[in-house]
């Protein structure tokens, strides 16, 4: 019975809850939250990255008692937050280049160590382009050295700042301006992909996790956990982009949720290279439900659609479900009958 007392109508999923202890409230439900990325930024309506960044950095600020420095890769997040003469950041923040955020953060961490200020922690952040592509070398170096940096990738699955071009994180069949939805195999090709969380794990760093803007509790818990650990940590956050995905601005969180619930974006955490926790799918959906509201996948549907590609994407989701054990076995079978 005592466990039932813990039940709240929205306890596990909504941002806040008037009924739970103050101490258990997520950062984002507090008026006192850091608002590290404050109002007046120039992100598009419904920007998932703006949301993800505030979620993550506010949580890190809370975990470090405000002793935090952020390093930012070039990209949407940097451009929309700091166009002269205004910045939306409220913590010490440095932007250097597109591809060097991890290395700059290493420098910051090294300086703090040299100065005996190891209580001040360092976060590096960037988009998927800055992380899986151009910034990959420095990131891998930072991992390998196990520098005391939490690197957060806000993955919106393409180069959005430059006008929606394919990145190493662009999913198969997605239309971008360098993978047009033309020809027999429209959109991005079905490549091997570049699964950075797995690559990060292969470095054996102490903490790797994935998250989305659809599950704030999970995201905050992971950031806070990451901040309890010293060494290189990697957090990969899925942040839908209404502009690049061709989705409605109000559906940003919904799409992130469907990405998880379809199995296309597994949410898990790993310590020292081993997966230690996986977020189970709560309401399994077919990939179609996730893909359909996105214009970047519009060519898969309709009279001239590509059911073969759709099936191939479903197969990816099914593989994820099996690999990460995203569903309890019975449920998974039932849904695939």
């Amino acid at each position: 019975m005592s466990t039932q007392l813990k039940f709240y109508q929205v306890g596990s999923f909504a941002v806040g809850n008037r009924l739970i202890d103050e101490a258990d409230l997520p950062e984002q439900s507090r008026s006192s939250r850091a608002n590290s990325l404050t109002s007046g930024h120039r992100a598009c309506q419904g920007c998932g990255e703006a949301l993800g960044a505030r979620y993550a950095i506010d949580a890190a600020m809370a975990a470090t008692n405000g002793k935090l420095v952020a390093v930012n890769a070039t990209g949407c997040l940097e451009v929309f937050s700091t166009p002269y003469p205004e910045t939306s950041w409220r913590l010490p923040w440095l932007h250097s280049l597109f591809g060097n955020a991890a290395a700059v953060a290493t420098g910051v961490a090294a300086a703090l160590r040299a100065q005996g200020k190891s209580d001040i922690r360092v976060v590096a952040q960037g988009g998927d382009g800055g992380t899986v592509d151009i910034g990959f070398g420095p990131l891998s170096g930072m991992f390998e050295r196990n520098d005391d940096v939490l690197y957060i990738c806000y993955d919106n699955e393409a180069y959005m700042n430059t006008g929606v071009q394919r990145s190493g994180a662009t999913p198969p069949a997605a239309r971008t301006n360098t993978t047009h939805a033309i020809g027999p195999n429209p959109g991005a090709s079905f490549t091997q992909g570049k699964n950075l969380p797995l690559i990060a794990m292969a470095h054996g760093i102490p903490y790797v996790a994935t998250a989305t803007v659809a599950d704030l509790h999970d995201l905050e818990a992971k950031v806070k956990k990451a901040m309890t650990i010293r060494g290189a940590r990697y957090l990969h956050v899925l942040v839908p982009c209404p502009l690049g995905w061709g989705s409605r601005s109000e559906e940003t969180i919904k799409l992130a949720r469907l990405a998880t619930e379809s199995g296309l974006f597994p949410v898990f955490e790993a310590e020292d290279g081993e997966v230690t926790a996986t977020k189970k799918i709560r309401r399994l959906v077919q990939v179609e439900e996730y893909l359909k509201p996105q214009k970047r996948f519009a060519h898969l549907f309709g009279a001239h659609g590509h059911p073969d590609l759709l099936n191939a994407i479903q197969a990816i989701a099914d593989r994820n479900i099996a690999k990460y054990k995203l569903c309890d076995p019975i449920e998974a079978e039932a849904d695939h009958e």
Binding site: L94, S96, L97, G99, A103, V104, V108, A109, Q115
Partner: peptide, 13 residues
């Protein structure tokens, strides 16, 4: 590339 980047981060700190 990272050498100079590390120096940038350190110097800015």
């Amino acid at each position: 590339f990272s050498a100079m980047s590390v120096a940038i981060g350190a110097s800015a700190t």
